[in-house]
Design a protein around this nucleic acid. Structure first.
Lengths: 195, 195
DNA sequence: TTAGGTATACCGACTAGTGAATATACACAA
DNA sequence: TTGTGTATATTCACTAGTCGGTATACCTAA
């Protein structure tokens, strides 16, 4: 039984992360991952029982880093909850301008696996998105905004809308627009009025 | 030179539409499309110069039907602009419950082609999404809502957010939540106040 | 000696795309 | 009416290469 902490396994996941994110899971062969990791396919199959297994491991490795990045942007921003939420979008727009940016790995993988809803990688993605939504609801609650769970969900929808539409238009203006919409939704709950 | 109106070509596009939407463009071979259309691969290649060409034709054929469907939902709904916008989401949630529903073909294709931003199919998708945004801005303008282009863009972001996140969670509650958020954004512009 | 880890070499199935031949239909001249 | 040429449309058989996955053997450290 392979060691789940082994440095070899980590090297494989790192290689898979680079390639899967850059090209998409369907366009990257197991051979290519093995080569990128500097070992043979047989070794890769010693550590992972299938390509599907490797895909799930790739996404699992992105869960915490992604969460920390988003939380960092929120925490670092000045101002009230509306400004902090908008800061997430501003920072997202900045990263999206980087030429290597290819959207959200979780969403892109789910899109590629749309015909296999029970795929383990989709489940990992669902857990990640739920983790984020839960964290955001808590953060909004800490800032005294009304209905944190409902608001967090609406913001999540705008964020994932950005990720998707950016892959079509490649125009960060959409992210800025989503940020303004999110701020509007936050303020609708700060004023307490049922707008 | 092949006839671009030929019934054979239409048969191929129809077959491609069924398979590409159900399985994703990367998981469907040209052989499979030819078989689904009831002809040989060589005939398919007489009508389309490449698989990429066929993918673009598939999406091109979905542009107008999709637009008409959305516009139909909007027009048929009772009430003000907020209710009409929310109706789009309610109907979307209803279709999403159908077992054959696999999200938005345009977004899924763009996600699969994230590493090829200039792909002809992505351009077709961009045109479609822009067509929809433009139509929605016009419809909102007809109902006297403020800042129709900005509002239309925000609603588009929520719709595409639904499409994406549904592929992960498979939970139509997200679509209902997006509908409420969209209605909130519309009302923020009906009251004219800068919420 | 034993077990974890790695390498070489291979499997059958499938991939996008093509060469060459042929079927069909219509135009026009004898 | 018949024969010939031409453009469109279709088929069979094939290429060269890639896919995920595996059988077998080897090496090294405990």
């Amino acid at each position: 039984m392979p060691d789940t902490q082994s440095p070899t396994r980590k090297r494989i996941v790192d290689a898979a992360t680079r390639l899967f994110y850059a090209e998409g899971i369907g366009r990257v062969s197991v051979d290519a991952v093995a080569e990128e990791a500097g070992l043979t396919k047989r070794t890769l199959y010693y550590h992972f029982k299938s390509k599907d297994d490797l895909i799930a491991a790739y996404l699992d490795g992105r869960d915490q880093p992604n969460l920390r990045r988003m939380a960092g942007w929120f925490d670092a921003a000045e101002g009230g909850a509306d400004r902090k939420v908008e800061a997430i979008f501003t920072n997202l727009a900045r990263s999206a301008r980087h030429p290597k940016w290819k959207g959200c790995g979780f969403l892109r993988t789910a899109a590629e696996l749309a015909s296999m809803p029970g795929h383990p990688a989709v489940k990992v993605g669902a857990r990640h998105k739920l983790n984020f939504e839960t964290w955001l609801a808590g953060a909004l609650s800490d800032h005294g905004v009304g209905e944190p769970p409902a608001l967090a969900r609406e913001i999540v929808l705008l964020i994932d809308g950005c990720f998707s539409i950016m892959l079509i238009h490649r125009n960060p203006d959409y992210i800025e627009a989503a940020g303004r919409a999110a701020a509007t939704l936050v303020r609708a709950r700060i004023s307490g009025s049922q707008v």
